[in-house]
């Protein structure tokens, strides 16, 4: 199946991919779903249901997208994810920060269009309007 239709996370896809490519790069999105499937401990990263642990490099941020390099660090170990669960943490904070809302607005076509319209009528650069919208969302979040 091809084209713009969502597939679910499948651990076997990740296992197969890492088996074929033990080195490479990973991109995580601040609003993406992959953050729910990985745990991080220092420089080690594990995927849910995947018996392989990766060693990752320092991330580089590209506006809501984090780029890591990876190498397979530990060979197959069925309890890899569970052992990382003890000391590991989520890749991003659970708190919805500015990066989260910036990414959220920009990937939502309708929301971003509204920001674009707002910028047009206010006669200001779209990034300024976007920043104001992010600040507004953060204030709402702080109120909750």
């Amino acid at each position: 199946m091809y084209g713009a239709k969502h597939e679910e996370y499948k651990a076997e896809d990740v296992i197969g991919f890492l088996g074929e490519h033990p080195h490479g790069q990973l991109v995580f999105s601040r609003t993406g779903k992959m953050q729910d499937k990985v745990l991080l401990a220092d420089t080690l990263l594990a995927f849910e249901g995947v018996p392989t642990v990766l060693r990752i490099g320092e991330p580089r941020e590209f506006r809501g997208k984090w780029l890591y390099t990876y190498d397979v660090a530990v060979g197959p170990d069925p309890s890899a994810f569970d052992s990382l669960r003890i000391q590991g943490h989520r890749i991003f904070t659970a708190e919805k920060d500015a990066a989260y809302f910036d990414d959220q607005i920009r990937r939502d076509e309708a929301w971003y269009s509204k920001v674009r319209r707002q910028a047009f009528w206010k006669r200001e650069p779209i990034d300024t309007t976007l920043r104001d919208n992010v600040a507004y969302m953060l204030s709402l979040e702080a109120g909750n």
Partner: peptide, 19 residues
């Protein structure tokens, strides 16, 4: 950045961040 750091044979796993 991806293409600058990648070498042949490397994998690239992308989280979905919009179609």
């Amino acid at each position: 950045a991806i293409n600058g750091a990648g070498v042949p044979g490397d994998g690239l796993m992308l989280d979905f961040f919009g179609w």
